[in-house]
């Protein structure tokens, strides 16, 4: 009986306390999202997520989720939004919805100095990319499905293989590549940046107009009041919007 009363009390209390907004990020994509030595999620995406939550005056919980399962986790309702530097693509739009973009990405081919790899001749080499990314799709289009394309679960694992010399080149997003090249002499960006009109947005479930509007309004808010520029400058020295 007592238990029933308590349950009823809990049920009655629920509508009053708003559910926290659950946001997923990958945690293996420095400097956008990574897990620091203390085990906390940090990075540009995490700061943007916190800034958006502050703007919306919402309570937020940020969780880490492996890249492979990050969209299925959203559709299954484990969290409500993905702020993990995710490209807005036609294929993803069939399953999820996106907010307005919060920055633009370019692809680059990273290779050992003097290796001869460029963005035009990748199919003659063994090339790595992170699985389930726009970089992997681009590489597949260049190399065909039977080329020597190695797919990795995380960007960090593929950079490790590039360093070890298992692959000749790695197709990466521009900003993480620049970050990695800072600490790794002897490697450089081969050829020009590849502009594939890649816009990065926040993924949410389909038919969640209210959340989409709230996130878009908050995004415009943090851009207008300078918070966005501050965070961006802190990580990249420039405003990357």
């Amino acid at each position: 009986m007592k238990k029933t009363v308590m349950t009823l009390a809990l049920l009655a209390a629920t509508p009053a306390m708003a559910e926290p907004l659950r946001i997923a990020t990958e945690g293996a994509y420095p400097p956008f999202n990574e897990v620091n030595a203390a085990g906390e999620l940090v990075g540009f995406d995490v700061d943007i997520a916190n800034a958006l939550c502050a703007k919306m005056e919402a309570e937020c919980v940020i969780v880490a989720q492996d890249w492979d399962g990050i969209i299925p986790g959203l559709t299954a309702g484990k969290y409500d939004a993905i702020i993990a530097s995710m490209s807005i693509t036609e294929e993803r739009l069939q399953t999820v919805d996106f907010t307005d973009p919060y920055y633009s990405n370019f692809l680059v081919v990273v290779a050992k100095d003097g290796s001869g790899v460029t963005s035009e001749n990748v199919k003659e080499y063994s090339v790595g990319a992170q699985r389930s990314t726009i970089a992997a799709v681009w590489a597949e289009e260049q190399m065909g499905t039977r080329g020597d394309l190695r797919l990795y679960d995380t960007t960090t694992a593929s950079f490790a293989d590039l360093e070890a010399g298992r692959i000749d080149a790695f197709v990466a997003d521009y900003f993480p590549a620049v970050e990695w090249l800072k600490d790794n002499a002897g490697f450089s960006i081969a050829g020009d940046r590849i502009d594939i009109d890649d816009k990065i947005g926040i993924a949410i479930r389909q038919n969640e107009g209210e959340l989409k509007d709230a996130l878009n309004a908050a995004l415009n808010g943090i851009i207008a009041d300078g918070t966005y520029g501050e965070i961006s400058t802190q990580y990249f020295g420039v405003d990357i919007y």
Partner: peptide
Amino acid sequence: STITVMDLMGQTRSVFARGYAM
């Protein structure tokens, strides 16, 4: 498939990445 071998699981995961079809 976690060490870049394109076995059945590796290929499946790549196909899954193309459209997230269950």
